[in-house]
């Protein structure tokens, strides 16, 4: 017994020859928002499936609130809520019927049931849609309903597997407001997975997982501090000359890609002087703080391989224009 909300030790899951989860260990404290970050196929969903009793571990141990996920399945199930990566609503029933079904299989007392259903539906702003069949809902509405359902029975730990996957930016923002609000209001422990780097930033603590292995685990700021410094990118009238000048003046490595980039310790303070004194004509300049993506690339030592990258992931990378590693 222990007082961790989630505890995982040397967890391994094999599918035939494939090792989907490879000796993973971590723990999550009550009330924490814990982010599992990694590319597609890293083993995030498999880990959640083991924690929620859908899959049996090949070896190792996992427990929720002290209950072992293999030996105490019923207690584990009662203490967790889930929003799966893929849709899991009954589309032929309406919103209310979906929630009533949930309330009953989770043995919620009848007294509490209707009140709590209304509260949750109002929270995700679907109370007006309660009598509509779920199949008429948009992707974002379905996600919100799943969130309301996952929370209905006041679970100790809420698992969110890519809660914003495939949603438009505005809906994503909205979902995040609910998620962060939850911690305030209900003190729920939240375990979420994502491959959106900028979303993982919102977690209290992050574990980075790649090919089934944990490669790092810490607070986002500390992970980013590990990569170190700020990145300056400049475009100039003569990049070759400018690169020489930077190396000479600041004794730093430069990277030539579409322009020049180099690292400095405190970008904001560095820039004014740099612009004033620089000999080559500057066309454009930008400053970027290290992101979790830089952390990921640094830790795994390579670019995330193309064939494993889904379209959404590619879009995320392109959007941020960070294809800098070779």
């Amino acid at each position: 017994m222990n007082n961790h909300a989630v505890q995982v030790e040397d967890l391994v899951k094999k599918f035939g020859n494939l090792v989907a989860v490879d000796k993973v260990s971590f723990s999550v404290s009550p009330g924490e928002v814990f982010g599992f970050l990694g590319p597609n196929g890293a083993g995030k969903t498999t880990t959640i499936n083991i924690l929620c009793t859908l899959l049996k571990p090949t070896s190792g141990q996992a427990s929720i609130g002290g209950y072992d996920v293999v030996r105490h399945q019923s207690q584990v199930r009662q203490s967790i809520g889930l929003v799966f990566q893929d849709p899991s609503l009954d589309e032929r029933l309406n919103a209310l019927q979906n929630l009533r079904f949930h309330a009953m299989v989770y043995h919620m007392p009848a007294r509490l049931r209707d009140e709590r259903i209304e509260q949750m539906l109002r929270m995700v702003e679907l109370w007006d849609k309660r009598d509509s069949e779920v199949r008429t809902f948009s992707g974002g509405m379905k996600r919100r309903l799943e969130l309301a359902r996952g929370l209905l029975h006041s679970p100790k730990v809420l698992f969110l597997d890519e809660p914003t996957l495939g949603l438009d930016p505005q809906t994503r923002k909205h979902i995040w407001e609910y998620i962060l609000g939850l911690r305030e209001r209900e003190g729920t422990t939240i375990f979420l997975t994502t491959h959106y780097m900028e979303e993982a930033d919102k977690a209290d603590r992050i574990a980075i997982i790649d090919q089934g292995r944990l490669v790092a685990m810490d607070k986002p700021e500390r992970l980013k501090a590990m990569v170190g410094r700020d990145i300056i990118s400049v475009k100039t009238a003569d990049d070759a000359r400018a690169a020489g000048e930077i190396v000479e003046r600041y004794q730093t490595n430069v990277r030539r890609d579409n322009g020049i980039s180099f690292e400095v310790s405190c970008g904001e303070e560095f820039l004014p002087g740099f612009i004033r004194d620089f000999g080559t004509r500057i066309l454009s300049i930008s400053l970027r703080h290290p992101s979790l993506e830089d952390v990921f690339l640094k830790l795994t030592g390579r670019e995330i391989r193309e064939e494993e990258v889904t379209d959404t992931f590619k879009a995320t990378i392109r959007q941020h224009g960070r294809r800098t590693r070779h």
Partner: peptide, 8 residues
């Protein structure tokens, strides 16, 4: 999945 993770 909703059914299989429920405490029944």
């Amino acid at each position: 999945k909703e059914v299989l993770v429920a405490p029944i």
